[in-house]
């Protein structure tokens, strides 16, 4: 038999490996904290100059004027508006395409469509922004006789394309997870396929679909290049869907290069980053809670 010492060192080795791996796994959490720390480090100095309320609800964003004004309300509205209209397009398309893939499509088409969705997800955002600039923009401008085609409508369409893959693939996963027995029971009671899908399958997958929609919205609100290139850039509260806006992400990306290091403007952009971070974090935590509660209770809400 081996000596006790040998066995002990071997076991310590195993425990050491486990703890080392645990540390690296925990790194994701640490990084999240680190992101927050550095956003605060560079963003908080702004609030020596203005109050949090003036920052969040001030309607004038003139960071380069003298004296500068750092009200990001128009930017927040810009982000919310483009996200809202993008979801108006992306939620039905994403959801319906998921139903098609999960429930209706024949095997061959299903595979093709899944690849389409995956490739769509892979399109770099700068490419979609570019497409929005050179195709959708001029088309909108001509068709509706607008001063500019770079506006909310354009941004909503391009953002929708970015959010559709998220909504579609996550909804599809949720639909797939519905046990076959449910469907069979419904068919056996004389329900049509449509009735089975709408009254049995979709309700059973509802929490997963909600998660998908929330994550799609989070994706849209955090998206940068598309809105930077096609939303038009006006830092004002919009009056209609053909008005230009400047969402938070666009503002950060466009202005960080010009903001003098650790100026008020620089700090204000980081502070905007904090707002963005908190909003998307909230979205993700809500999505996480919904999907987790579902896992624990099953589809008891059906």
């Amino acid at each position: 038999m081996k000596t006790r010492k040998n066995i002990l060192t071997k076991r310590t080795e195993e425990i050491a490996i486990r703890n080392l791996f645990g540390f690296f796994a925990f790194l994701s959490v640490l990084l999240l904290g680190l992101i927050l720390v550095f956003l605060f480090r560079e963003g908080l100095p702004l609030f020596k100059q203005i109050s949090v309320a003036d920052f969040l609800f001030g309607t004038a964003w003139y960071p380069t004027y003298d004296p500068p004004e750092y009200g990001i309300w128009p930017l927040i509205v810009g982000s919310l508006v483009v996200t809202f209209f993008a979801c108006l397009i992306a939620v039905p398309l994403g959801f319906l395409s998921a139903v098609y893939i999960a429930e209706i499509a024949p095997a061959g088409i299903k595979e093709i469509l899944k690849s389409v969705i995956e490739l769509l997800a892979g399109l770099p955002s700068v490419v979609l922004g570019f497409f929005g600039m050179v195709i959708v923009g001029p088309w909108l401008q001509e068709t509706f006789d607008l001063p500019t085609g770079l506006n909310i409508a354009n941004a909503a369409v391009m953002l929708a394309i970015m959010a559709i893959p998220t909504i579609s693939s996550l909804s599809e996963d949720a639909l797939y997870a519905v046990p076959r027995e449910f469907k069979e029971a419904s068919y056996a009671l004389g329900a049509t396929r449509y009735e089975t899908i709408i009254r049995v399958v979709v309700p059973a997958a509802l929490s997963g679909i909600s998660t998908a929609v929330i994550l799609g919205m989070a994706r849209a609100i955090g998206e940068t290049m598309v809105v930077l290139m096609v939303a038009g850039g006006a830092a004002a509260v919009p009056g209609g869907i053909f008005d230009a806006v400047r969402p938070m992400t666009a503002s950060i990306a466009a202005e960080m290069g010009e903001a003098p290091f650790r100026s008020g403007h620089y700090h204000a952009l980081f502070a905007t980053g904090i707002v963005l971070f908190v909003i998307t974090l909230a979205f993700n935590l809500i999505a996480d809670t919904i999907s987790n509660r579902f896992r624990e209770t099953g589809s008891g809400t059906l």
Partner: peptide
């Protein structure tokens, strides 16, 4: 850890940019 990974996945890319800068 799982929540951390999920939330990290949801951080907007421009915020990663800010973090990288800071």
């Amino acid at each position: 850890i799982r929540i951390g990974v999920n939330c990290l996945a949801g951080v907007p890319s421009v915020v990663f940019g800010l973090f990288g800068l800071g």
